[in-house]
């Protein structure tokens, strides 16, 4: 991978002109990110800090803020010692992420490649593959999913061909989480679309040149597609991981955490504590621990990215 040490070279030539240039680029940079910065300070930072504060209190969502009582690390203690459900929620979430996210990304990339041809009718195919994603979290999809995996549902009908006995997939503690994983994989439309946009950005000349050199399809995939798509793969990996660890809607509308808490995902448990049990302090503490967990894994992926993500422009500074 072409790493041009241009910056290090130029840094040595620190001349007054460049200093001015740097100051100017500082200004321009802040002008460009100003909208985000303003919105961050105006709308995001305060609520985040407030929830951080709540996590050290016994704040109940039904009370006004002044009733929150400081309890130190009590919420965190409860999480890791007495609350047996917390561990369940953590393990259910990890189980989900480990299977759902890689499978979803593989499907998304595979289908994106398949649809990235000059053939006719791609628009319709894309729409069809994107369809499950846009029915997303509606009540209707919850109803349908319960029926598809129900005792007399489609899945059992299909499996009967292979002599697999009927079972109630969604209500069974051994299989319930798998139906949610299947649902997640089936809704691969968003990462697929991002991959597709990424594939569109790869100049066709690269492939043409490779074809002239007699490279095989697999060869082209490994040495052209993968590296050039790596920024997008990286993005999808990070974002899917984050959203996977915060998975909520599907479990909320379809299983509600049942059976036996096997689908009680982390974010669902947070919601339950915050809005059904009115324990906002405890919910906030859980949320901040989740933030740390996600940040930990995200940091690992970010660190590793220098090894496998190829940018046209080398990161500076």
């Amino acid at each position: 991978m072409a790493v041009i040490p241009a910056k290090t070279a130029s840094a040595k030539l620190a001349a007054p002109a460049q200093k001015r240039n740097f100051r100017q680029s500082n200004l321009i940079g802040y002008i460009f990110i100003a909208p985000w910065l303003l919105a961050f300070f105006a709308f995001t930072l305060m609520p985040m800090l407030a929830s951080l504060y709540f996590s050290f209190t016994d704040y109940s969502s039904l009370d006004s803020l002044d009733k929150a009582r400081w309890v130190g690390l009590q919420n965190f203690e409860r999480m890791f010692t007495t609350d047996t459900k917390y561990i369940k929620a953590v393990s259910a979430t990890f189980f989900y992420v480990i299977f759902a996210i890689p499978l979803r990304l593989i499907f998304a990339l595979g289908l994106a490649m398949l649809l990235n041809t000059g053939r006719k009718g791609m628009g319709l195919y894309r729409a069809a593959f994107y369809a499950p994603s846009i029915v997303g979290g509606s009540i209707a999809v919850a109803v349908m999913w319960r029926q598809v995996f129900g005792t007399e549902g489609l899945v059992n009908g299909f499996l009967a061909f292979f002599g697999v006995p009927a079972r109630t997939w969604l209500g069974n503690p051994d299989t319930a989480i798998w139906t949610l994983i299947v649902l997640a994989v089936w809704q691969f439309g968003s990462p697929m679309l991002i991959f597709l946009a990424g594939l569109k950005q790869i100049p066709t000349e690269f492939y043409e040149a490779a074809s002239i050199d007699g490279a095989s399809g697999i060869r082209k995939f490994i040495s052209i597609t993968l590296p050039l798509l790596s920024p997008v793969i990286f993005f999808n990996l990070i974002m899917q991981m984050i959203s996977g660890l915060m998975v909520f809607t599907q479990a909320f509308i379809i299983t509600g955490g049942a059976p036996l808490d096997t689908t009680l995902f982390y974010a669902l448990y947070i919601y339950r504590r915050a809005f059904e049990n009115f324990q906002m302090g405890y919910a906030s503490a859980m949320a901040w621990v989740l933030l740390l967990i996600i940040a930990f894994f995200a940091a690992i992926v970010f660190r590793s990215s220098s090894q496998w993500v190829y940018y046209e422009t080398k990161e500076e500074g």
Binding site: R146, Q147, F149, G150, T151, R167, T168, W169, L170, G171, N172, T255, G256, A258, P259
Partner: peptide
């Protein structure tokens, strides 16, 4: 049965 109850009916 409970599985069926949870999947299709309960709540």
């Amino acid at each position: 049965n409970r599985a069926e109850d949870l999947a299709t009916f309960d709540g």
